[in-house]
């Protein structure tokens, strides 16, 4: 997961809105709230994109609670059965649940940071076997047949977030390349 300056995925992941509250009055920025008021008052809540919230929070102009996709409720669901949580729905857009979580963790203090990262890592590790099986299965599956969407694998596939989907595509692609090599008859060029 790169945080490269030019990485489009990182940019998209940073664009999710975070609910922040201001710790001081700000003059002239009332339009951020969407109202007609001219100033932002102390303790007022504003939805800010993460890239803005990050800078403001690091300078202690704003504070934010852990957003709902990483709340205890989700954590409990992940503990119960990591594979059946639909991460794709938790964060809007393409659902960069891991990336966004990691960026948020960067802003947090030591203890909540380690806590959040551990949650993310544990979720990823617990979902990896299912992901690997699924990509291997899809690489070897015959795609001329219409796909059934009843098995548990398919529901897991619907719940994959952005990076998991990329990983899935990579696994599927390399599996496919090998399979087509094994199946080819080596008659290239020939006599």
């Amino acid at each position: 997961m790169d945080d490269d300056y030019y990485s489009l995925n990182s940019i998209l992941a940073e664009n999710h809105k975070l609910s922040c509250s201001f710790t001081l009055d700000v003059e002239g920025l009332g339009y951020l709230e969407g109202g007609t008021e001219n100033n932002i008052h102390q303790h007022s809540k504003v939805e800010l994109p993460f890239w803005l919230a990050q800078t403001l929070s690091l300078n202690e102009f704003t504070t934010f609670p852990l957003p709902p996709p990483y709340s205890n409720r989700v954590k409990a669901a992940l503990n119960a059965s990591a594979q059946s949580v639909k991460l794709s729905n938790l964060v809007g857009g393409n659902g960069w649940w891991y990336r966004w979580g990691r960026r948020i963790a960067d802003v947090l203090d030591d203890e909540p940071q380690a806590d959040l990262l551990n949650t993310l890592l544990k979720a990823f590790v617990n979902r990896l076997p299912a992901l690997q099986d699924l990509s291997a299965h899809h690489a070897s599956a015959d795609h001329t047949l219409p796909e059934g969407s009843t098995s548990t694998g398919e529901t897991f596939r619907d719940g994959m977030e952005g990076d998991e989907r990329e990983l899935f595509a990579i696994g599927q692609e390399s599996g496919k390349v090998s399979k087509s090599w094994y199946d080819s008859s080596g008659r290239k060029g020939g006599r």
Binding site: D2, Y98, A114, N118, L120, L121, Q132, I170, S178
Partner: peptide, 24 residues
């Protein structure tokens, strides 16, 4: 090497993600 070539892309990416999620 042939078996590795099938395995490598997936493994490298998965481990990359895990490393970036590792607590600092």
């Amino acid at each position: 090497p042939l078996e590795l070539s099938e395995l490598k892309p997936f493994l490298v990416k998965a481990m990359g993600i895990m490393q970036s999620l590792e607590p600092r």
